[in-house]
């Protein structure tokens, strides 16, 4: 395990994400597109950060780099004390299994599995007993307020309920970092508000670090820090609350 060289903390335990001159390029039809340009950003453990910006500004791309599901073209990227650029494919997968939970805009539950089984799925990658697995899944379903729907299949749930199950699946492994890409983007106002309350509560009660992409400024009010991207560049970074 390599540690970050954050000056504030020799063990890198205070900063959960450190990027320096982070670049992501895609080649499209022989042309290179700079989707992210020289991003410098440090996020602290326990923070609730909203990543904002217009469509195509690179929010999802940056979130995917944090999640270790995409690789930077250049620059430094340390997440949860790990230099992600140094990991092999398999190591990165293993790291994801323990360090991050990811919530998608479109939930992406496995349709042929029940709510319970969907939440249980990531725990198969952890070396824990059946009983422990059961306890963790129940606890996760409980904390997102959907325990009574554990036997339902995704198609039997509303969008808001599906997203709750997806959040339970993301936190069941107790990851250091919870990432969410427009988690309320596909929900009506009422369902969206209740999902945001859930995320706030996870942040407040568990000290869960959350980085959330959103278009919507009212959604962003739940966050403590707003990071704005435009055309792949970091344009604004404001703290909302102390």
């Amino acid at each position: 395990m390599q540690t970050t060289n954050a000056s504030t903390d020799p063990h890198g335990q205070r900063d959960i994400i450190v990027c320096k001159n982070l670049e992501k390029h895609y080649s499209r039809g022989g042309e290179t597109v700079r989707v992210l340009e020289s991003i410098n950003l440090t996020l602290q453990r326990g923070a609730f950060v909203a990543l904002m910006g217009p469509s195509g500004s690179g929010k999802t791309t940056l979130l995917n780099l944090f999640a270790g599901i995409d690789r930077p073209t250049a620059g430094v990227l340390h997440v949860d004390g790990q230099d992600l650029t140094q990991l092999s494919r398999a190591q990165l997968a293993q790291w994801r299994a323990t360090s991050v939970g990811y919530v998608f805009q479109l939930y992406h539950l496995v349709p042929v599995l029940t709510a319970y089984e969907n939440v249980e799925l990531p725990l198969y990658l952890h070396d824990i007993s059946r009983a422990e697995r059961h306890a963790r899944v129940s606890e996760a379903l409980e904390s997102v307020g959907i325990a009574d729907r554990h036997g339902h299949y995704p198609r039997q749930l509303s969008g808001g309920q599906e997203q709750r199950v997806a959040i339970a699946r993301a936190i069941v492994t107790r990851p250091a970092l919870l990432l969410a890409d427009e988690p309320t983007g596909d929900l009506d106002r009422v369902a969206a508000a209740s999902i945001m309350q859930l995320l706030s509560r996870l942040h407040r009660e568990r000290g869960q670090t959350i980085v959330m992409v959103t278009h919507d400024s009212s959604t962003a009010t739940h966050a403590q820090r707003l990071v704005h991207l435009d055309k792949g560049q970091l344009v604004e970074d404001v703290a909302v609350r102390a």
Partner: peptide, 8 residues
């Protein structure tokens, strides 16, 4: 999705 969850 499975890969994101950490499946190799």
């Amino acid at each position: 999705v499975l890969q994101t969850l950490g499946f190799r």
